[in-house]
Design a protein around this nucleic acid. Sequence first.
DNA 1: TACATACAC
DNA 2: TATGGTGTATGTA
Length: 334
Amino acid sequence: MEKEKNESSSSNGNPKPWQSYQTVYTNAKAGMDGVDKEKVQRVVYEMSKGSKYFENEERKEAFIRQKIEHMRARCAKLTAHDISHYQKVVDNRLPELEATRDLSRTWLHVDMDAFYAAVETLSDPSLKGKPMAVGGMSMISTANYEARRFGVRSAMPGFIACKLCPELNFVPTDFKKYTYYSDLTRKVFHNYDPNFMATSLDEAYLDITEVCRKRGISSSEIAEELRTRVYKETGLTCSAGVAPNRLLAKIGGIGKVTEHILRDVFGIKTCEEMLEKGSFICALLSNSTADFFLSVGLGLGGTATPQIRIVMLETWEELNGDAFDRIEAPGLGI
DNA sequence: TACATACAC
DNA sequence: TATGGTGTATGTA
């Protein structure tokens, strides 16, 4: 375990001041290819340092580092006997989790591309091809692909985005507009799964098992058809992921703090390693947290449509005579 | 039970 | 000049 190196260090071994684990946290989001990450990190650091926000971030990072040190110390103290005990716990638990695997359903995860920015471009086509962000000087909610090439991204303050991309066009948020277009996409989703789960204005999970069976076509054909129909109805593009459960259809659920802990305490970077290091996970973490990680390692995710919002749904329908069914997905929906 | 943290959009 | 608002899940005091 002590061999594990902190990968946020630069290759000569000395991290630059702006290279805290936080800013080096890998960003695999679409449109970030070819961005000069080092330059972006430096600009963000220069614009942030000294601010209240920055000091608070540093305090939180120090706290996490301390937590990680503590966990590493506990790891180091585990005896061979402890480890073989927890290995047995894992060996019992994995088959139990495996037994819950359900490969009988097909889930589709739909994610609108740069949704707010794309809607704003529909209402003002002169923005097409120009770097643009929805939000203001304090906060950006969405950046289009032209802006992302400069390192501009969601949840970045607008004044930093200006520094990265002086040509950036700002458009104020208009949720009425986004709700209108979201409803148009949801009318399309409804044709494929009347009980689809909406997680936000621009994302939804659809159980397409039945529609595939009824029409005798594959899930990828359904995905392509749905994307075409969404485009026809709205003029907006979306991406769609297909898998036997929601976790795999979307991929996610582990954020920067969890990633840091997994990597620096347990040396875990892949799902395979999550299973290999299972005994350490069980030794240090609660049962529910350990179950969560082992399930992620096995690629297990939610497959059933929760029927928990029936009462709210009826109320909602009473209020909206011709409304279609809709289930709001709880939490991460995985 | 109340509060803090992590996560997602 | 300036770093969101909201909902869910989980852990801890």
